[in-house]
């Protein structure tokens, strides 16, 4: 649920910047776990945009979501360099280890392409993953 006071504070912190929409959306996503219709409407009103414009931006980018999912998130790199080091076999392992409790998503490149397969959990990156290592990481979430 979006807290209106906190939302107003986020908007106020950025509204005088050039091109403030993405910084606002990042902060709202981080604060509330999603950017719901109410938040989109409030942002649109504050920036003098239509709701459609804000919705269009929210739905364009992979980092933004419109409904919350508070499960822990594991982003497994599925790009070519990690595939060359066996990431595809790990994807199935990750799904089994995660079940419904943990969300497993694909990410395309974490910039650690010489030491894959790699994964990101929050702001922590993990390299040289194998089946055991990845399973342990997911179990610990």
């Amino acid at each position: 649920m979006t807290d209106p006071d906190r939302l107003r504070a986020i908007i106020a912190a950025h509204r005088d910047a050039e091109g403030p929409l993405l910084p606002i959306l990042h902060d709202v996503q981080a604060a509330f776990g999603c950017i719901d219709a109410a938040a989109q409407a409030a942002i649109a009103a504050a920036l003098n945009l239509s709701r459609a414009e804000v919705h269009g931006v929210v739905s364009f980018y992979h980092d933004f979501s419109q409904t919350p999912d508070h499960r822990p998130l594991v982003q497994l790199c599925r790009a070519e360099a990690c595939q060359a080091r066996g990431a595809e076999a790990l994807a199935a392992v990750a799904q089994v280890a995660a079940g419904e409790r943990v969300r497993v998503a694909a990410v395309y490149c974490l910039g650690l392409c010489s030491v894959g397969p790699n994964a990101r959990i929050g702001d922590r990156l993990h390299a040289r993953l194998d089946e055991d290592g990845l399973t342990r990481l997911i179990a610990a979430l």
């Binding site: 990690c82 490149c109 910039g111 650690l112 392409c113």
Partner: peptide
């Protein structure tokens, strides 16, 4: 925005 797989020099 170094999105290419296999690149990390910018990072």
């Amino acid at each position: 925005d170094e999105g290419d797989s296999g690149t990390f020099a910018d990072r």
